[in-house]
Design a protein around this nucleic acid. Structure first.
Length: 583
RNA sequence: GGGGCGUUAGUUCAGUUGGUCUAGAACGCCGGCCUGUCACGCCGGAGGCCAGGGGUUCGAGUCCCCUACGCCCCGCCA
């Protein structure tokens, strides 16, 4: 038998044709006198009917087939007459089989292969190959495939070259924890799997390829989350002779191509841009969800001299007091309490609130706020009777993350987030460095090769925290989906940044000597970006978890429940590598 | 590293204050009947180390402790 059609192909126009279909038995209904089988392949479902008056041999053998058997049938397409199934694309026809071949029997699967799966995720992960048979996951991976194709098509058309970089590479202690691979040939030495191809793509620029891209796995040995896997896929790209706008515009074209390939209206361009400072002060996040308001408002100046000590102290100690104005709903006391707990998760000591009434503020802290301050707050908040104001007073980072988190919860809860919309926003002007309190030193926020803005270079020595980077992140609906920068291409500037990072000459040489050497031989100005492919798919298909966008994902404990990786290895393997296990 | 929720037939769950629980239901599975089903229907049947270990108790699926695993979050993620 040779397959003639997929299980999603046949329509009324095919009635009368002899066809051969291959696929899995999705379901069967044995009525005694005849047997119906829903046959499934990746294109869809087709009803096959075995009728003893058509072909008794096929009918006899159809009685023995079970769910998930792999079969092939030959038969005649016929109309279902008035017995149409309007829920199936092929619902107007069926195939009356006169031939049946069973390619594979199947044990009863541990869970039903159906759209509304009710099995737990752990079970589905153990039998991932069965879970992947489900329409839902097949659709996600099929859409992912077309998005990846769009990436290649678009970038190649824009003059990018798809070039590969090594997976066995050098450990760089900066940044995320590395996955390490012992070297057998060089005992006692280790490779690291790349956290990103960062240095190699810069070397492609030094080599003169001008435009590079790669759809590539990256590895980070950090704890997992709903949107984080230890190995994930980046769309990595780098361009020579460019400034920020060139990279941003290329990325916007890329994102539009992806969205369009997924069959959606491409987003309006150019994407809006926010500075890092604005993103934090208005949305409390460096990956702001700009699909709705509820923006944070800085009330520090207004409450600085207020009678409420919590506010006054925060203001006097260089902290910040900000608030969001929730209108159009009356938050219950218990909801306010639970929001306070949510704020506490992000370090806030409390979530103060007042309800705005005609006669003034109402609530536990109202009595501490004098009339003048209250009037000032109402003014900057644009508050009117019926509104509820939520405050956090603390150091700015706590205010932003706590209130930003509360903002997201309320936005969702109050139905302010538009469904199905894609809201891209650039966040620019990140700080170059941030202070690591634990180690009491400055560390790169993005990475050590990010260029500072020219007008800020003079601050590197004395006020490193004020230096802005030529770095940018792309956020989509409140998720970070990409980030990049214009790189340093001059050794003298790189040296200054390394000095600010407290890296000695020896350390520089040991860690990045090859890159510094390369830059001595004529490096073009260059910059690039890396996009998180899995997260992009997640947001476009509306998945709740990054695991739903990856064929074979790991659990939050970084285990592969299907293969049982990681696992112990033969002691001889360790001996050969010169590695000894302590556990 | 920390916090929260969870783990009972193949699957999803119920299981009262610790005592007819000799642990139930639904779906699935197996057998029988059934020629127009598409969540087919009807009848019958099989199926359990209550995650693992320890403790409290006359008695533990139920209470306590530990461990493992799953999910979510904080830290972490240049």
């Amino acid at each position: 038998m040779k397959r003639t059609h997929s299980c999603g192909a046949l329509r009324v126009a095919d009635v009368g044709a002899e066809v051969v279909l291959f696929g899995w038995v999705h379901g069967r209904r044995d009525l005694g006198g005849c047997v119906f089988v829903d046959l499934r392949d990746r294109e869809g479902l087709t009803q096959v009917v075995f009728d003893p008056t058509v072909e008794s041999d096929a009918y006899e053998r159809a009685g023995a087939i079970r769910g998930e058997y792999v079969i092939g049938i030959r038969g005649i397409v016929r109309s279902r007459g008035n017995q149409v199934n309007p829920d199936m694309p092929t619902g107007e026809i069926e195939v009356s089989a006169h031939n049946l071949e069973v390619f594979s029997k199947a044990e009863t699967p541990p869970f039903h292969i159906e759209d509304d799966v009710d099995a737990t995720e752990a079970l589905r992960l153990r039998y991932r190959y069965l879970d992947l048979r489900r329409r839902e996951l097949q659709d996600v991976l099929i859409r992912r495939s077309s998005m990846v194709q769009a990436v290649r098509r678009y970038l190649v058309s824009e003059g990018f070259l798809e070039l590969e970089t090594p997976f066995l590479t050098k450990s760089t202690p900066e940044g995320a924890r590395d996955y390490l691979v012992p070297s057998r040939v060089n005992r006692g030495k280790w490779y690291a799997l790349p956290q990103s191809p960062q240095l190699f793509k810069q070397l492609f620029m030094v080599a003169g390829f001008e435009r590079y891209f790669q759809v590539v796995k990256c590895f980070r040995d950090e704890d997992l989350r709903a949107d984080r896997q230890p190995e994930f896929t980046q769309i990595d790209l780098e361009m020579s002779f460019v400034n920020e706008d060139d990279v941003l515009l290329a990325t916007e074209g890329l994102m539009s191509a992806i969205v369009e390939a997924d069959g959606r209206e491409p987003p309006p361009r150019p994407f809006p841009r926010l500075t890092y400072d604005d993103a934090l002060s208005r949305f409390g996040s460096d990956k702001p969800d700009v699909r709705f308001g509820l923006e944070l408002v800085d009330v520090t100046a207004v409450v600085r001299s207020s009678g409420f000590r919590v506010f006054r102290d925060a203001a006097e100690k260089g902290g910040k007091v900000a608030a969001i104005n929730v209108s159009g709903t009356d938050l219950s006391r218990s909801r306010l309490d639970s929001l306070g707990k949510e704020a506490a998760v992000h370090g806030a000591k409390g979530l103060a609130w007042v309800k705005v009434k005609e006669e003034g503020f109402q609530g536990p802290i109202a009595k501490f706020i004098d009339d003048e301050t209250a009037t000032g707050i109402r003014e900057v908040m644009g508050a009117s009777a019926g509104d509820c104001l939520l405050f956090v007073a603390d150091i700015p980072s706590v205010v932003h993350s706590a209130l930003g988190h509360v903002r997201l919860l309320l936005g969702k809860e109050l139905g302010l987030v538009p469904e199905n919309s894609l809201s891209f926003v650039w966040v620019t002007d990140f700080p170059l460095l941030e202070h690591d309190a634990e180690e009491d030193r400055w560390v790169a926020l993005h990475h050590p090769f990010t260029s500072p803005r020219a007008e800020d270079v003079h601050l590197l020595e004395d006020k490193p925290g004020e230096v802005r980077a030529r770095a940018y992140d792309l956020a989509l609906n409140g998720s970070e989906i990409g980030g990049g920068s214009i790189r340093i291409h001059r050794p003298d500037l790189q040296a200054k940044v390394f000095r600010a990072l407290g890296l000695s000459e020896e350390e520089q040489r040991a860690k990045f000597g090859f890159l510094l050497d390369a830059f001595k031989y004529g490096a073009p100005p260059h910059g690039g970006i890396a996009m998180g492919m899995d997260r992009i798919v997640m947001l476009l298909v509306g998945a709740d978890s990054i695991r739903d966008t990856i064929a074979f994902p790991k659990t939050t404990r970084a285990l592969d429940l299907m293969t049982d990786a990681p696992s112990e290895v033969d002691p001889r393997q360790l001996a050969e590598l010169g590695v000894k296990s302590l556990s």
